[in-house]
Design a protein around this nucleic acid. Structure first.
Length: 652
RNA sequence: GCCGCUUUAGCUCAGCUGGUAGAGCACCUCAUUCGUAAUGAGGGGGUCACAGGUUCGAGUCCUGUAAGCGGCACCA
């Protein structure tokens, strides 16, 4: 007998070998009908699989998130069957559930076309309608390898061969179609339902390695109900409207063109936004004990060889040769320059930690396929800083940095999506001992400072040290690394950085590479999508448009504009001979935060009718009232905090 | 870089099986002075991404190149 503990805490006994379905049936016939999966001590099991033992027991129905993941996984299997049905000779590889859907990687000579997706979808529907039972079978390892080899599934055979000996080989069968799979799966294909849609085709390398064969990946999305699917598709459509590339064009912020691939032409409006972000960042760094520097844009190749970048990234650097035969490289990063500044003269332990910041323009020859709007560029600007410190200052500096980062993101209204710790890569500088210390310190400090779980990424660190990554999301949910903090014991060694310690000895400082925005361009891209272009007043390139109803008020409008400008606001004037409806519509579509309408009435009374973006009411204020209200609201969050603090001191 | 898709007016897009380019918005001109999301009339604007090829004839078919888009790989 086994004991099953139900979610309500009650315990019931069942015979050995009882299946989840039997248990569900024993409770209620209706429950059996709705049951899809079993959760036993946290592990998911097939409904019809004999329970391996007792424990915390739960019956999952269509509504549970875990079931949705299995629906997606099953959809990938059904797609694989459909594909092999329609395109004989296609080999299957792997097909997992992912966020919002699933994919499957196929090996096939001729690529799929977009037209194929419709026929695959249709065949999938037929498989669902056939309601094939999905049956789990345990196979002997050698039999399995032989079987998959015999039917021409080389990739499956390779997967089994590479599984550890101890692994149980399970094959899931739906009708005549079989796939090697860990499971679990739904009881039959009907339960997948029809709320799925194949969305895109893509190339993908076998086992994620570009030296391997390229497979063809088909992506799909799958949901528990048609309504969920429809909602998801609507969400995607809406998100696409927030694409920074579209908004960038519509709001005249920037453009890119062929002659400067991966580089931005910032237009006046966009550059205003950029400067607002930069000015804010500069104030935050100043206030947090950083000094700002500026290093040369192009430096001799020798320096890059010494730093180690030439060897590892030389292929991705923009280089040039001078008329006198010097070989130069455009800086792909700022650290070597900062070390030169650190090295100038003598540094004492009293100077540490030295936080050296630069809005550093970097150029990297990124592979063409990596470019993406203003998120991934060949010319970008890092809000970079290097903290030179002693080993025992690492944790405190890390904590301090994360606190600043959190505060900055909050001010921009951005929500941190995830924090990751990238650990030592195969190719690296420095001894294992140094890496042990570096990884431990970063991990410990991050745990203290970050209010979310930290994901470890083995093998993904920089060649000189482990890396903390702070990720943000774009409109359609892709994540982008923005903030970063990287520990470096190597560069100070290579570039001979030293300070004089308390005992008079010369010591190597540790370097922390850190950025909050990461790339100013990427950060602004994320921000554009986050606000969908409807920026808060302090960020909006144009904060106020003053517009008239008839030309009677033109002179007054000019007066108002001058007064608002004098108060430091970014103001435009619109005196066009158009109906007020037309002008309101146009400036609303442009997402201008404040439209100040002046008609004859306002002109006579010295007032303004303010209309805020997103509302259709208006507030009538005197010019003075409007100026003080708007200029207060237009303060950057840090400046607003300072004003408030001052007010409290004065009030106290 | 790899796989797939796309590229027509400033923008968004239409142009069936090859017969010589179109809409809406925007822009310009004129009229209109109208109190909170589109006033009317008129006008200008395209080497159909680029380079070859097939054809009597190519935006349309073929080949190549480039850029963009979606993934993959890469990301100091």
């Amino acid at each position: 007998m086994i004991d099953l503990i139900f979610p309500d805490g009650s315990v019931r006994q069942f015979d050995e070998g009882v299946s989840g379905r039997d248990v569900a049936a024993s409770i209620a016939k209706s429950l059996e009908k709705r049951a899809l999966l079993i959760k036993l001590d946290g592990a998911l099991l097939d409904l019809d699989r004999p329970l391996p033992g007792g424990g915390k027991f739960e019956i999952l129905t269509r509504e549970s998130p875990e079931a949705l993941e299995v629906i997606r996984h099953d959809a990938s299997h059904i797609m694989a069957e459909a594909v092999q049905d329609l395109f004989p000779g296609t080999q299957v590889t792997i097909g997992p559930a992912i966020e919002d859907g699933f994919y499957y990687d196929f090996a096939r000579e001729t690529p799929f076309s977009l037209d194929d997706l419709a026929s695959i979808e249709k065949r999938m529907g037929e498989i669902v309608d056939r309601d094939e039972k999905i049956v789990r079978e345990v196979w002997d390892r050698e039999t399995a390898i032989a079987h998959f080899k015999a039917i021409g599934e080389a990739y499956k055979a390779e997967i089994i061969t590479d599984l550890p000996d101890t692994e149980t080989i399970t094959v899931y069968r739906q009708g005549a179609w079989k796939d090697l799979c860990l499971g679990p799966h739904l009881p039959s294909t009907r339960h997948v339902g029809k709320a799925f849609k194949l969305t895109k085709l893509a190339g993908a390398y076998w086992r994620g390695d570009h030296r391997n064969a390229q497979l063809q990946r088909i992506y799909g999305t799958a949901w528990a109900s048609e309504a969920d699917l429809a909602a998801h598709l609507t969400r995607i459509e809406e998100a696409e409207r927030r694409d920074h590339r579209k908004i960038g064009r519509a709001m005249d912020l920037f453009h890119l063109q062929e002659e400067a691939k991966g580089m931005i032409f910032w237009h006046a409006q966009g550059w205003t936004l950029y400067r607002t972000v930069e000015n804010y960042m500069r104030r935050r760094l100043d206030a947090d004990g950083y000094v700002e520097v500026k290093a040369p844009q192009i430096m001799d190749r020798g320096l890059w060889e010494k730093s180690g970048h030439w060897e590892k990234f030389g292929q991705n650097m923009f280089t040039c040769e001078s008329a006198e035969g010097e070989e130069l490289a455009v800086k792909p990063m700022n650290c070597p320059g900062h070390v030169q500044i650190f090295n100038f003269g003598q540094k004492s332990y009293r100077d540490l930690p030295l936080r050296m910041a630069e809005f550093g323009a970097c150029h990297r020859y990124e592979p063409s396929g990596a470019l993406h709007g203003i998120m991934r560029l060949r010319a970008f600007t890092q809000d970079d800083a290097h903290i030179f410190c002693r080993e025992d200052q690492i944790e405190e500096e890390t904590t301090r940095f994360v606190r600043l980062l959190n505060s900055v993101y909050a001010d921009f209204g951005l929500e941190l999506h995830s924090v990751k710790l990238a650990l030592r890569p195969d190719l690296r500088a420095g001894t294992d001992e140094v890496w042990d210390i570096a990884e431990q310190k970063l991990d410990r400090a991050a745990r203290q400072a970050v209010n979310m779980p930290i994901e470890h990424l083995p093998g993904e660190g920089a060649f000189y040290g482990p890396k903390l990554e702070f990720h943000l999301r774009d409109a359609i949910g892709r994540t982008w690394q923005c903030g970063t903090l990287q520990l470096d014991f190597v560069l100070p060694e290579r570039l001979d950085a030293e300070y004089v310690a308390e005992d008079g000895s010369k010591q190597k400082p540790v370097m922390l590479h850190r950025a909050i925005c990461g790339s100013m361009e990427r950060f602004i891209g994320v921000m554009i999508e986050n606000y969908a272009g409807a920026f808060p007043l302090w960020l909006a390139p144009t904060q106020v448009v003053v517009t008239t109803i008839t030309s009677d008020a033109d002179d007054y409008a000019r007066q108002v504009v001058n007064a608002l400008k004098a108060a430091g606001l970014r103001v435009e004037i619109d005196l066009r001979n158009e109906k007020i409806n037309y002008k309101i519509r146009e400036h609303s579509l442009a997402k201008t935060p404040v439209i100040a309408v002046v008609g004859r009435r306002e002109a006579e009374e010295g007032k303004l009718a303010l209309r805020r973006f997103g509302s259709d009411g208006q507030t009538i204020l005197t010019l003075d009232e409007a100026i003080s209200a708007l200029s207060l609201e237009a303060l950057a969050p840090d400046a607003a905090r300072a004003v408030k603090a001052k007010g409290e001191v004065a009030g106290a």
